[in-house]
Design a protein around this nucleic acid. Structure first.
Lengths: 168, 168
DNA sequence: TTATACTTTCAATAAATATTGAAAGTTCAG
DNA sequence: CTGAACTTTCAATATTTATTGAAAGTATAA
């Protein structure tokens, strides 16, 4: 297996992983392509390498730019836009995790909190039991969320290693 | 808003969250229904409450049983099967997280590892750079994975609180 | 053993999601 | 200005994923 084949394999597995994670396959593949490219890459390069349409390439790039995990790069005397990947894994992993937390955790916390306040008044046995279910869930999610925030705001990847030693 | 409406709201938001998390909406709703039910629930109850088909109810139950986050419950003198939810959040959250880790992380680790070994031989500048990308990613994922294992195997929820204090 | 009460399967169908590509929009050099 | 080079949008289409429901399977009481 030569280098190009290996890179292709990387792009494929990254796309498949993205799907599992609820990240669009094309989006994940574009990031993978930028990660393995030594040179800045244009929209046309992406269309050709991944055999996807211009619209898809454009939307995938936009999303990655929004996430802040790839960057635009201008090349003097060329009107095309080029793109490069953020290579520091910690940086982009944190950005993706934050984005997912915001999308997946926070709306639920809000509803759980609302529910808690509504159900609190109900003094039937059934009501109390439901309150406990919701309250437990809220507390648990809140703890997870707080932990995530702490980790995201700590600015070094070594934190992970520190955590590991502590948890042993 | 009465108790039934609150419970319905809980079921709805849980289903929506499930979708975001790549867990089938019906599966998440069935778990939510069992969580808020004071009595064991039959397949027919589920079909009626969630207005889903028998096939869907059966498949959702099977999946939740496989995950180990709900249990069968026999009721004397009744041939129907009834189901109850695991109420300890820590227990089922860990089970879901383990299942997702296994599905999402481990296959990638394997491919990244393979890739590392293949690319290691390539001594071109390009090859070395790609090796670093893959190796960094592998190390990062491996650390996350190890951390997850430690957390999953620690048997008490208070660990989370301990972690919180440390990370501050 | 047979009828009945229940569970499971799975091909057909519906719903949700991703992708295409042509057309409209933008920017800029001449 | 104008036209060329590029980017963005979005309705149509394709693909993937979830759901249905009828038929097949299984277990039990009589």
């Amino acid at each position: 297996m030569n280098l190009e084949e290996s890179k292709q394999k990387f792009i494929d597995i990254w796309g498949a992983l993205g799907s599992e994670w609820g990240i669009n396959k094309s989006v994940a593949q574009v990031q993978a392509l930028l990660l393995v490219s030594t040179e800045p890459v244009s929209t046309d390069d992406i269309m050709e390498s991944l055999t996807i349409s211009r619209g898809n390439a454009n939307m995938s790039l936009r999303q990655l730019l929004d996430y802040g995990i790839i960057y635009k790069r201008v090349i003097a005397g060329d009107r095309k836009e080029y793109f490069v990947a953020e290579k520091d894994i910690w940086k982009w992993a944190v950005k993706i995790a934050m984005m997912r937390k915001q999308k997946e955790i926070e709306p639920v916390m809000n509803v759980l909190n609302e529910l808690k306040n509504e159900v609190k008044k109900d003094k039937t046995a059934d009501g109390k039991e439901f309150f406990k279910t919701v309250d437990d869930l809220y507390s648990f999610t809140d703890q997870l969320s707080t932990l995530a925030d702490k980790i995201f705001s700590s600015n070094r990847g070594e934190l992970l290693l520190k955590l590991l030693k502590i948890v042993i």
